[in-house]
Computed example of a mutant assay.
Amino acid sequence: MNLLLGPILILVGMFLLELLTIRLPGSGVLFEKLKAKINPQGYVGALLLGILFALSFCPTSAALFFGSLLPLALESQSNIALPAIYGLATGLPVFVFAILLGISANRVAKAYNHILAFEHWARKITGLVFILIGGYYAWVNIFSPFIVEN
């Protein structure tokens, strides 16, 4: 697993920096058609629309979870703690955002703009850190055994 951890972290970092993207043909059109059908359905439609929006954010979350968190959890022999912390940490912004939504739509719009600015830089910094750590792991586990000392 140590041999794979470096390249995986580099790939995840490249996805976070948007150096690599996966574009599925027609996926945007499908989501728009589903949204148009779900919107007039009331609370059930709101639930389904929320699930639809959650699925639209899934690629980044899945890349982080399966690409970096699970290998780290397996390496540190923390089968439950790290995924549980990840689940709580990824659910916490949703919870906070729901509270903000309940308080005021105007305040949410302002907070959302701040969150977007923070998210942009946080994603860039996290992607850079992943690439650096992945490069370190690749150097230590893949390339350094080939270096012969005199």
Results as ranks from 00 to 15, higher is better:
residue 121 W to Y: 15
residue 103 I to W: 06
residue 22 I to W: 09
residue 58 C to Q: 15
residue 23 R to G: 05
residue 107 R to F: 12
residue 130 F to V: 05
residue 104 S to W: 02
residue 104 S to C: 06
residue 73 A to D: 00
residue 79 N to P: 13
residue 124 K to M: 08
residue 111 A to I: 02
residue 65 F to E: 00
residue 107 R to G: 11
residue 150 N to L: 12
residue 143 F to T: 01
residue 3 L to Q: 15
residue 91 G to C: 03
residue 51 I to T: 02
residue 135 G to S: 05
residue 77 Q to R: 13
residue 93 P to G: 03
residue 14 M to P: 06
residue 106 N to A: 15
residue 92 L to W: 01
residue 55 L to A: 04
residue 96 V to P: 02
residue 19 L to P: 01
residue 95 F to R: 02
residue 78 S to F: 02
residue 75 E to T: 15
residue 61 S to K: 13
residue 33 K to T: 09
residue 8 I to D: 14
residue 115 I to M: 13
residue 54 A to P: 00
residue 46 A to D: 06
residue 147 I to A: 08
residue 124 K to R: 15
residue 46 A to Q: 09
residue 128 L to Y: 07
residue 81 A to I: 13
residue 112 Y to D: 10
residue 58 C to S: 14
residue 61 S to W: 13
residue 7 P to S: 01
residue 54 A to Q: 01
residue 121 W to E: 14
residue 138 A to F: 14
residue 39 N to W: 15
residue 90 T to L: 07
residue 61 S to D: 11
residue 40 P to T: 07
residue 94 V to Q: 12
residue 62 A to H: 04
residue 57 F to Y: 15
residue 11 L to V: 14
residue 121 W to V: 15
residue 99 I to Y: 10
residue 109 A to I: 06
residue 49 L to W: 01
residue 68 S to D: 07
residue 8 I to A: 12
residue 106 N to I: 09
residue 73 A to E: 04
residue 104 S to Q: 03
residue 15 F to A: 02
residue 57 F to L: 10
residue 44 V to K: 06
residue 125 I to R: 03
residue 6 G to R: 00
residue 74 L to V: 12
residue 83 P to A: 04
residue 31 F to P: 06
residue 54 A to V: 08
residue 130 F to W: 01
residue 10 I to A: 05
residue 41 Q to T: 13
residue 91 G to N: 01
residue 90 T to N: 15
residue 13 G to D: 00
residue 108 V to P: 04
